[in-house]
Write a protein that binds this DNA or RNA. Structure first.
Lengths: 335, 335
DNA sequence: CTGAAAGCGCTTACAG
DNA sequence: CTGAAAGCGCTTACAG
């Protein structure tokens, strides 16, 4: 019923192999033949059957984005989808399709990754940090399957990964505050166990120390995810006698809450208290005055993941181990 | 190199066809044979080559989610990805994989949809409203390709779609406010041309009118997307002599701004001014006090899209034309 | 520069 | 209940 390569061959008066070669850009076909074949393709509206192409070539031109998906995922972690968009943009340029797979409901550890690797339904995978269990890592390493991991696995591994340098982000925050003349700096972070939060604090602390402005431990606060806990921490810090000149918020939810506390205490920004936050999204658009932000180009992280993988697939000898994107400072009205 | 169906057949002492039948659940195979085949599959760690399966069956067990993707897409429209998650959840249960395709950079109108339909790389598509151009619609209709559209196409069409009833959402808002005793109600919406906004207003207006509480036109405000424009509209409405008792915000960005205006004007909620908003995500988690919300289960919209499509694929005779999800009221402290 | 033919790894009528 | 064989629609060594 649908047009096949043989129909095209017949219409162009050549063999199917020749049509195939034209489609695949072989340089050995004469211009005249090429033109006739292309004319036949156009007039018949021929599109190669991708199932047959994949089968014959032994490759799908498809990349799987392996991650963990639950209800409200897109709201709780829009960053993950922004990474996906970045990866998609570059992979589609390399003519890969992109599919997504959730491994959070695997019925046994490593189920999804096992099927992905052995099923041959994709040529490579991008693994979001949320999906990187030790079974996933082990399967990838054992099979040497083409991959890129989003997020630096914190253990020693031959896996290939891309990540943002959060320590450097902390340093950027410190550099900015120092340049603006703030020497007494506080920090409101997530839970103490939170990796990104601790990395950002690390960079901030180191840089402040290096410039001779040691951060007071009582101005370093480990908070949480809910509004009230954060709010109380903010008020405490803002009303303490050793209130810093500037506060660094580890994420923009904290910044929203801090700004509300500042306003309710009738303090003025940046004169009474300056602050900056990490991460532009998802909340800073609702903030007024506009905060100063150390942002991470999450889309670019996806782009790097995609291009790293695509380049490795085009040239399997390539040994890309890791890549790190840079944070970016956006000046606002709060510092 | 990798294990094929023939290796399994040999190990189990049967033919490849028999192995295939066991894998595909044919009921004609004896229990004893089935057991032997399954043992061979396990011991050889056999996983069928998906490329070969797709080719032989003439179907991919893959669904394409067609949408429009740009940088910051995940931040600007997290709802789209939540829909994707909902669709994914049900499609994966039906053993479909899901891939995404962006048609916003098509080099000619209808390029992506044309390739999708003719290339045979998927068995069906879900089309997000942002990707539904007239070329997309025309290609789908002409080919009768299995599909579901997210969002009611506002023109007459044989397309199958799912959507949320925004007029009903407006009605829910009105019902709630009336039940709470508010009879003078205002509305702050997006631009006048915004479809969802107008639908919500329509339901609100109709229901208020039906109960004998006509909304005053000066309390119906068409605003915009930026903080300051909305803020000014809020202040104007809050300080007008004909200030309503309650305000309905068409989206939660507006609600955040309204709440800030209320606080700065030292008004108290809900006594001086009550309000409710549509959409829980992405901003209401930053609001204090917690607002009353008419929420839309966007995930469920994706679930409906997925199951509608999956059921149609399993039973092509099925004629599902459209499906509408219901809004949900979440009581907060602002009404 | 072009084509005949084998092959990619399954599925499925069909025969027994 | 099981198997031999054709076939799905391409690609690609190989021969000419």
């Amino acid at each position: 019923m649908s047009v096949t390569i043989n129909d095209v061959a017949q219409a162009a008066g050549v063999s199917a192999s020749t049509v195939s070669k034209v489609i695949n850009g072989w340089t050995t076909i004469s211009p005249a033949t090429t033109a006739r074949v292309q004319a036949a393709i156009e007039s018949l509206h021929y599109v190669p059957n991708q199932r047959a192409v994949s089968f014959a070539k032994g490759a799908t031109k498809n990349i799987t984005f392996l991650t963990s998906i639950n209800k409200s995922q897109a709201y709780k972690n829009p960053h993950m989808f922004e990474i996906l968009c970045g990866a998609y943009s570059v992979l589609s340029k390399y003519n890969y399709t992109v599919s997504i797979t959730d491994n959070s409901s695997d019925t046994f550890p490593g189920e999804s990754i096992y099927r992905i690797i052995k099923g041959g339904a994709c040529d490579g995978i991008i693994v979001h940090g949320s999906a990187l269990t030790k079974d996933v890592a082990a399967n990838i390493v054992a099979s040497e399957f083409p991959h890129t991991i989003i997020g630096n696995p914190s253990y020693d591994t031959p896996l290939c990964w891309v990540d943002t340098n959060h320590v450097l982000g902390g340093q950027f925050a410190a550099d900015h505050l120092l340049a603006k003349g703030y020497t007494e700096v506080g920090f409101i972070g997530g839970r103490k166990s939170d990796y990104i939060s601790s990395q950002r604090l690390k960079g901030l602390r180191q840089t402040m120390l290096k410039s001779g402005n040691k951060m007071s431990t009582e101005n370093i606060i480990y908070s949480d995810h809910d509004f009230n806990t954060i709010y109380n921490h903010c008020v405490k810090l803002l009303t303490s006698k050793s209130r810093p000149q500037a506060i660094v918020c580890e994420n923009c939810f904290i910044a929203v809450v801090l700004q509300k506390a500042i306003e309710r205490l009738s303090l003025s920004t940046p004169d009474d208290i300056a602050f900056l936050t990490f991460d532009k999204y998802p909340y800073t658009s609702t903030m007024q005055p506009t905060p100063t932000i150390v942002d991470i180009d999450v889309y670019d992280l996806g782009v790097q993941a995609g291009s790293t993988l695509a380049r490795k697939l085009e040239n399997p000898k390539l040994l890309v181990q890791s890549y790190t994107t840079l944070p970016l400072l956006i000046q606002g009205a709060t510092t």
